[in-house]
Design a protein around this nucleic acid. Structure first.
Length: 561
RNA sequence: GCGCCUGUAGCUCAGUUGGAUAGAGCAUGCGCCUUCUAAGCGCACGGUCGAGGGUUCGAAUCCUUCCAGGCGCGCCA
């Protein structure tokens, strides 16, 4: 539609130029926008405003000339010049009504596109250390990351989701020491309690299970507690397996699935870490200082060089991370999106710099990052501090249990990732019925309910029949809905392109609002069968788009509430 | 001190990549169920878009200087 309109304006401009009314060499970048206010029609162009100066005309005069020169088109009902010189276009009724047919014929596919067809994208998200349960911040990562996967898939990409487990670093050693201390019967504050040990109660549970000889059956590993407080290696393996299982259960409860669980330790096993170091040294990007091996990341835009290998011979977190991303590159992903908390933003420059230093042909801006800001949790009017070491925080499981999976997911994905958000548990609980997610789901349930009512009355709904009478849809509220439905496909494309799933949530809220308003103002099951058919068709189209949108958020679309 | 993110209604947040009179939910007040689900609808109230300067036909949006908050700045991950 927009393309057709742009073409019409191009024709108008060139015919004006041919008549000598406009300079022949006028370059025009024609943009068509959807209008915000229905008084401004359906679509609008600011072309007269942008060309006015170069054309030597005032904008409204130029807009008038363009309108007069515009070829006739049956999808345009009317044009208007408004404000400082906007050209507003009013679509013909049949043109705007046609969206109902498009939606019902496409069904689940409405809004989906092929922009990324034939290309593979990997989305890495959550990637929490197996040192404790998932908290609300991980929940935001899970909600956003999963929705990103769905958006990329909806725009044609072949998507692989991945969870990276840091099971080889100092945090894990710290975890093992903490569990060992608990296994010895010590508590935080005890003289021999490890410095920076994890103090949470769950550590005691891990130790108890280890001492009881429990077996952890996770998807890819089976570990039995050795019940020996002296065997730190056995404790490490058991604790990691135990906490990974807990996290898997959290993610399952949240409805999030990963295609690949990638272990940091596997990078060492396949020699990827050593190979990466060797290549960086060969490339001349490293130097030794203070007994450590450094990478000159400042060559690639970092503000200071980074240690790769510590004095004690171990690698820093950073080095295996570079090896990991090289591994991703070599797996052939055209795009990689890393969804992480904003506290990791300093790794962005470092990882990209490391990849450049490897000189493997990785593009400079690769990979993409989506960094979500922190989630503050309020309970009883006070901020709950998230500290694993202190052991006090709100787990994702708590939230799912208390406010429900759909509401939790919706809340965490409905805001721009760049926005810091406050999750007020008391509010979410006390006003659970006022949560926007129920408002949207209710629109879906209502549309389903109308259909059930039809069947109860013995009506056989024939889609072909209904679509033949869409010209009955002429009420103001119906026009608003038609316009809203029409806008959905480009909204999905933009949300995927910009990594902004929250726009889907906002759209659904508005669509539901339009639907509830219409529902309240006009009966659907009227005696006039043509009108009834048309309205039920519109209702079904709203239902379909609502279901499609909720699916992109990973939120359910109930048929009754 | 440096880097990244943010500052919009009492509160929580949108704002379609620079467009027209800045929007929604919650909260507050007043209305609407004999009628397809009231988990709903309508009306009202509520704003110097953190502040100043700049760019242009046009700025919440871009540039700049301040102010305020969050996060990061480790041979932790």
């Amino acid at each position: 539609m927009k393309e057709q309109l742009i073409s019409l304006i191009e024709q108008a401009l060139s015919s004006l130029a041919a008549d000598g009314q406009l300079p022949a060499d006028l370059q025009a970048d024609i943009k068509i926008d959807r209008t915000r206010d229905k008084q401004h029609g359906d679509l609008a162009s600011n072309i007269a405003l942008t060309l006015a100066k170069r054309a030597g005309r005032n904008p409204r005069e130029l807009a008038g000339m363009i309108c007069d020169a515009l070829p006739d088109a049956d999808f345009i009902r009317d044009t208007d010049i408004a404000g400082p010189g906007f050209i507003n276009f009013f679509l013909s009724d049949s043109s705007s009504q046609a969206v109902v047919k498009r939606v019902l014929e496409a069904g689940y596919s409405y809004g989906r596109s092929e922009a990324g067809a034939g290309q593979r994208v990997q989305v890495e998200y959550v990637s929490a250390n197996p040192t404790g349960p998932l908290h609300v911040g991980h929940g935001r990562g899970a909600a956003v990351g999963d929705s990103l996967c769905r958006l990329m898939a909806a725009t044609g990409w072949e998507v692989a989701s991945e969870f990276y487990y840091n099971d080889a670093g100092a945090q894990i050693s710290n975890l093992a020491l903490s569990v060992q201390a608990r296994a010895n019967g010590w508590e935080p504050g005890h003289a021999q309690w490890p410095e920076d040990g994890y103090r949470g109660e769950y550590i005691a549970e891990v130790a108890k299970a280890y001492m009881a000889g429990e077996t952890i059956d996770a998807e890819d590993q089976h570990v039995t507690g050795a019940a020996d407080p002296g065997d730190i290696e056995a404790i490490r393996r058991f604790a990691v397996a135990y906490l990974r299982r807990e996290q898997d259960l959290d993610l399952k409860a949240f409805g999030v699935h990963f295609d690949v669980y990638f272990l940091e330790s596997s990078l060492y096993e396949i020699g990827a870490v050593d190979a990466t170091v060797a290549r960086l040294i060969d490339g001349g990007h490293t130097y030794e200082a203070d007994g450590a091996l450094w990478l000159r990341t400042t060559t690639f835009g970092d503000d200071k060089d980074r240690v790769m290998r510590k004095q004690d011979g171990n690698y820093t977190y950073f080095l295996p991370d570079v090896a990991y991303h090289l591994n991703k590159w070599e797996r052939g992903f055209a795009r990689v999106v890393n969804e992480q908390g904003a506290d990791h933003h300093s790794t962005v420059t470092r990882v990209r710099a490391g990849l450049q230093a490897l000189d493997k042909g990785v593009p400079e801006g690769w990979p993409d990052y989506v960094l979500h800001q922190m989630v503050t949790v309020m309970r009883d009017g006070e901020e709950v501090k998230l500290s694993k070491r202190a052991g006090s925080y709100v787990t994702l499981r708590d939230l799912i249990d208390e406010v429900g999976r759909d509401a939790t997911r919706y809340f965490l994905v409905a805001r721009a990732p760049t926005s810091q958000i406050t999750f007020d548990i008391d509010l979410a609980l006390s006003q659970s019925n006022d949560n926007p997610v129920y408002y949207i789901q209710y629109a879906h349930a209502r549309a389903c309910s109308v259909m059930r009512k039809l069947e109860d009355q013995g009506w056989q709904w024939q889609p072909e029949e209904a679509l033949a009478h869409l010209d009955s849809l002429t009420e103001e509220h119906e026009r608003a809905l038609l316009k809203r439905l029409d806008q959905y496909p480009e909204l999905v494309a933009a949300a995927a392109r910009n990594f902004e799933p929250h726009n889907i949530a906002n759209y659904l809220r508005e669509l539901a609002g339009d639907f509830h308003t219409w529902y309240n103002a006009h009966k659907m099951l009227v005696d006039d069968s043509d009108l009834r058919n048309a309205r039920v068709a519109l209702s079904q189209a709203v239902r379909q788009v609502t279901a499609n949108g909720l699916d992109l958020l990973g939120v359910s679309a109930p048929e009754s509430m």
